[in-house]
Amino acid sequence: MRLSYIYSMKKVLIAIVLLITARAASAQKELLPFDEHNKYIYYQVVDQPTLTADTMYNRALYFLKTAYPKLKVKTDKTNESISGAGKFVVTSTMLLKHEDGEISFTYTIESKEHKYRFWLTDFTFTPYKTDRYGKSVPADGIEIPLEKGTTKLTKKQVDNYLDQAGTYSKQFGDRLKQYMVRLSVTPVKETKTKVISTKNW
């Protein structure tokens, strides 16, 4: 009786371990293949049959200004391409999430008649250190391209940061798509909270 109980317990524990392992393996880093320059890239081409190049260009500008106001934005003279740079914070996978550093990247958004494309690349990790005031600040002068990450970081760290870079890039693309397809991209006004009057009944 006791042996069969232990056996059942073992199966249950194995199931928990497998479940957790499966979750860890469902990583977003697969979203970042290498480009022709051997750099990680998040690249998407999206058809928008009803939209003109100008409309998409303007909506992309509005998207950057509204959804990612801290990104640097550079436009070209032909009104077809927007590029720039940004960064986001990456955390460790420990129980208490620790700000490990930040990843800087460059992005490009290009529009043509009825389609647009965008990509994020040049992912570069800068570790954080805790300064004398307890603030997490970038370590001066240390920049580690994720392609060469394993020369300075552990494989586990690199996988974690690639995962977070993939998640960030996907989120960037999903939000861009939302701004592109909306006819009106102004934020929806919150409906006024209904007030119940107890005076009249």
Binding site: A67, F88, H98, T130, G134
Partner: peptide, 15 residues
Amino acid sequence: QDTIKTTGDAPLVVY
């Protein structure tokens, strides 16, 4: 909900 917060408030950090 596996997304990176780009806006909003940071959580309480223990260091």
